[in-house]
Design a protein around this nucleic acid. Structure first.
Lengths: 250, 250
DNA sequence: CGTATACTTGAATTGAGTCAATAAGTGTGG
DNA sequence: CCACACTTATTGACTCAATTCAAGTATACG
């Protein structure tokens, strides 16, 4: 169940009453990967005082593009899909977020995209104005958020190059390479990954159709670049070849 | 000529020795449109102390994608083209910057894109580390930069939707609408604009070829949506129709 | 175990790209 | 001010990568 509808005060009390008396942030699994990294115990108390921990079922929205942008979030578990839609239903997925990622940066009244859970999701939710107030109390926190924004901006530029100028095969190769890279940071196996998203999500992320994504997977399997033990599992036979394909060296 | 090669000290002395003794920032034409908006006289002195004013010839680079990201800039006059390239030369233009725009946000060692002048360009250049030091002295400045980054992020999301899911006609209509909108902010005529960029730049921005851009312009002229008195001038006959086209209502 | 959903494959179509030939600007020097 | 060269833009004919439409096949889940 979500904590979404639980009064905030009750929530904070519950959070503070952990069995060992520690601030739950101290034990947070993504502590060192997120915007909270490097905060000291005292600062974490500040953060903890304004956070609401919540869970969201798979395929439910965290927020919609047109929602008033009152909160920002930190993903602690699960995967989020960010997307925008045209009036006639055409969809562009603008990104996927994983544990440790920051969600909801927007210097405007509404969010820039819709955010939906594509697996059971755990989040830390912060009221925007309270987080901004924290910027004055925790030196470096704002700089960290600026860093996050800057990294997102770089990723967005890369995605524009992909969408505007890459072929279907290059697009899929680039996508898979970025998943490998993200997996590396989390210390997982580097020659195989699980795809938390389905073919439609991948297609909408790469500006393709599901059929083209499927055909491109098939072609890569035939070429011996990768294997698909199941639809959501990819084993890389030739990671370097994949990297070459992603940069157009074919 | 550029001030790029003039020693910084000399530069600052020259800047301070204005005829009326005022900080040149006070008279800056883009003062209220830029990240400097709302700074008081004292704060502008701080800014002025670290700025180098420079000019760049048309078609020359401000910096390249692979350059060490040591400076940030404020465009005071002219137009900048931002782009990324694939090894084989395919290019994606990721944006155009106009007077008042901020350039070079990057939380990494190198820039995320190449920035080139597409008209004679005037810039204010700030050493990154000095600007970051200013964040501590000028309250709200960092927040302002975060705001700029956030707006760029939103624009990048919109561009992803355009590149991934819009037709050629929708792409061009969207582009023209955004130029009208930008023109409005500067208080110009709203039913006609000058295009500072050529057809290749537009094509590379929209993920098209020059031929398709040209054909799409021709079609819009035939449909009575706009007129092209010259290749770099667009007169809008039916701005509302253009808006409709941009959102796929056809 | 059946049924809905997701994925793959095939055939035909098409929107935009490519290649090629003008046409229209733009600038330069005589 | 014009003739020339050069660049940029337009137009036409043809091609092709990806989409669309249409079956099938696998997979997940109550």
């Amino acid at each position: 169940m979500s904590t979404q509808n639980v009064p905030a005060l009750f929530n904070r009390m519950a959070i503070r009453a952990t069995s060992n008396g520690l601030n739950p942030c101290e034990a947070c699994p993504i502590r060192d990967m997120s915007v909270c990294a490097g905060l000291n115990s005292h600062e974490l108390d500040h953060v903890n005082a304004i956070v609401t921990r919540m869970t969201i079922d798979s395929e439910r929205a965290v927020f919609y593009e047109w929602d008033s942008a009152e909160h920002v979030f930190n993903v602690t578990n699960g995967t989020v899909r960010l997307s925008k839609m045209l009036p006639d239903g055409r969809r562009q997925v603008t990104g996927f977020l994983y544990p440790g990622d920051f969600l909801g940066i927007a210097y405007s009244d509404t969010y820039a995209y819709t955010a939906e859970a594509i697996s059971p999701l755990s989040l830390c939710r912060f009221p925007r104005h309270k987080l901004e107030a924290l910027f004055d109390e925790i030196p470096g926190l704002e700089k960290r958020v600026l860093g996050v924004a800057s990294n997102e901006l770089r990723a967005a530029q890369d995605q524009m190059l992909l969408l505007g100028r890459k072929t279907a095969q290059e697009k899929l190769a680039t996508f898979l390479c970025s998943l490998i890279k993200a997996g590396k940071q989390n210390g997982g196996r580097q020659d195989a990954i699980d795809l938390p998203m389905n073919r439609t999500d991948i297609a909408d992320y790469l500006g393709l159709t599901t059929e083209t994504v499927s055909r491109t997977f098939t072609r890569m399997v035939k070429d011996g670049v990768l294997e698909l033990p199941s639809t959501h599992r990819v084993v890389f036979q030739q990671p370097k070849r994949l990297q070459q394909i992603s940069e157009g060296e074919t």
